Amino acid sequence: MSLFYIERAPKTAVENPNVLILLHGYGSHENDLFSFAEELPDELLIISARAPFEMGYGGYAWYAINFDANNEKFSDVAQASDSVDKIAEFIDEIKRKYNTKKTFLLGFSQGAILSFGLSFRYPNKVDHVIALSGYLLEDLIPNEISADITTDYYISHGLVDQVIPFTWAKKTPDFLNNLNLLNEFHEYPVGHGVAPQNFYSFKDWIHKRL
């Protein structure tokens, strides 16, 4: 497989499972979002992928975040682009290996940023995107966006996020609405994290689409 991963098999045997693929954030690892797995619908196959770039101390990244002379952060777009391609290949491998039906892609922070990018670079490779505490990185969005995308989006963000400003995330629904893509945007009075209400909200969103 092109990425290391851990899995939770469906708790009820099913021939063509719906799959939820988890993409962690910068400096984290595959066990982070996997903590959600036990609380998610029994019929889901849950796959949690590890990002390809090792950072030490057990942390991994999908792409580097660097600082310029003015201490301004910027993303390594080439690495981010490579990771989108790796994730697309990984999704195909998972689909073939497990003979899956619908594909849900859930990303947190960097994982959410790449989930958005992948949904436009590889139209309809995933059916549903859950983007937590991320934003649209324009450099990952193609100049020409397919008119045939049917993916829908659940987006959430903390109002006091100190890592990715809330104002960045708030632009996403307008972008999706202009493309006539179904989306829900939820805001929570938290920082860069997932509030319990947020978890139950996206869990319900997933359940309705199974």
Results as ranks from 00 to 15, higher is better:
Y5I: 03
I6Y: 03
I6R: 09
I6F: 00
I6Q: 13
I6A: 01
A9S: 14
K11H: 02
A13M: 13
E15S: 12
N16V: 04
N16A: 11
V19E: 05
L20G: 04
G25E: 08
G25Q: 06
G27W: 07
G27K: 06
G27D: 11
S35D: 13
S35V: 09
F36W: 13
E38T: 07
P41N: 08
D42T: 09
L44T: 05
A49W: 02
F53A: 06
Y60L: 06
Y63G: 04
Y63E: 01
A64N: 15
I65H: 03
N66R: 12
D68A: 07
A69P: 00
N70M: 10
N70K: 12
F74R: 02
D82E: 15
D82Q: 13
S83E: 11
K86T: 08
K86F: 08
I87H: 03
I87G: 03
E89Q: 15
F90K: 03
R96M: 13
R96N: 15
K97G: 05
Y98D: 11
K102Y: 10
F104I: 11
L105Y: 09
F108I: 12
S109Q: 08
S109A: 14
G111I: 10
G111N: 09
A112W: 01
F116I: 06
G117H: 08
P123M: 11
V126D: 08
D127R: 07
V129Y: 04
G134K: 06
Y135V: 01
E138K: 15
I141Q: 09
N143G: 15
S146I: 08
I149K: 02
I149L: 10
I155G: 01
L159P: 00
Q162T: 07
Q162V: 03
P165V: 06
F175M: 02
L176S: 03
E184D: 13
H186L: 01
H186W: 04
A195K: 07
N198D: 15
N198C: 12
F199N: 02
F199Q: 07
S201G: 02
D204Q: 14
W205C: 06
I206R: 02
K208Q: 15
